[in-house]
Design a protein around this nucleic acid. Sequence first.
DNA 1: TCTTCATGTGTGCAGTGTAAACTTTTCCTT
DNA 2: AAGGAAAAGTTTACACTGCACACATGAAGA
Lengths: 201, 201
Amino acid sequence: MKTETTDAKPYHHGNLRDALLAAARRLLETEGHTGLSLRKCATAVGVSATAPQNHFANKAVLLTALAAQGYAELETYMRRSLDQAADRKTRREVALLGYVTFAQDHPALYELMFARDRVSSNDPDLMRYVGKCFVILADISKDFGHFTGDPATVDAKQQMFLWSLVHGYAQLLTANRLKKDEMLEASILDIIPELKTGSGP
Amino acid sequence: MKTETTDAKPYHHGNLRDALLAAARRLLETEGHTGLSLRKCATAVGVSATAPQNHFANKAVLLTALAAQGYAELETYMRRSLDQAADRKTRREVALLGYVTFAQDHPALYELMFARDRVSSNDPDLMRYVGKCFVILADISKDFGHFTGDPATVDAKQQMFLWSLVHGYAQLLTANRLKKDEMLEASILDIIPELKTGSGP
DNA sequence: TCTTCATGTGTGCAGTGTAAACTTTTCCTT
DNA sequence: AAGGAAAAGTTTACACTGCACACATGAAGA
């Protein structure tokens, strides 16, 4: 007997899960991870304080979903100008620049994506998005001449090298642990060692 | 009129600040950062819930002190076998292994040391310990042959390169974002590119 | 000795995550 | 169409947290 003529707020939100994620994302980027609470998300969306429990079993589940969304967005940053790039060296450069740009645009989210105990690393959805990022990393890490060994080992070393380098660079930039007069002006492309020999496309 | 014959617990703790830090460290390493609370630290030490306020203005101050202690310990890990090392290449290797070992021994503390908003990066005490670690990094990053430019620029690139690489490697290892079948067996020393030319000691 | 001050305690309050019981709407089956 | 199950909200309750504030205690110098 509630059917009024004016369209009041409906009892069911319709897409509360996504709305909560969006609110959490906004809270994270404006107030940092200490200012992110389930109750704030709920009131920001306009539902009761415990409504989020229907969509996220606990806070860790929401944070994990947020991190997964972050990896998806990181992938789009890396893929942004990937198709126009002709050879692998250019693809590597645009992808790495995209990676670093993402971390600088969303530092709090990027930190969450590598937080050990706030997100559950055995979540298959999360790891699926991580894997999609890794596909790009694996592609652009080929054709270095720096490592030796059998081909599989060389590939593994190249991947581990490039991901470590770009992740470390991105986090050092965003974590504010650098004395600003020292090295901030070096781009990620400036600290990639030159090849011993010329590389093929 | 409280002087009893049996030595009861004294009203003043004597060294509460350090005791609280030790308790916080223990809580962090056993229960993770979500299980660390000022009240737990207080009861673990045996004082009232609000006693920590006399030594740490708020929780962020305690976490910053904890991070500073972490950087101090990271320095000792890096310096552990540094004196026995003859040439710079060997020094670089033992220091980097010490760095990674520290991160693996204390993953939660290591994560805290690079947390953006939990620790205040303008704390001079913290940055002093960061600087002491950086001195070692700056030393062992010399004499790469990978970069070009004027000497100061080359030094900056070398430092940024090595710190990014080892930090990224350490965090990827401890953050559980790697598919375990892929690359975990590569040591940090395996992913440092070879020099183009032989290096002097 | 006495007064001052660092260092404790106790109380109170606004927020937080989460469990449990209840209500409302949707939706599927008959 | 009727009706019941299930999805998705609500309210209430509780333990825990950080922090502000007033007060108590004891050490240490004037």
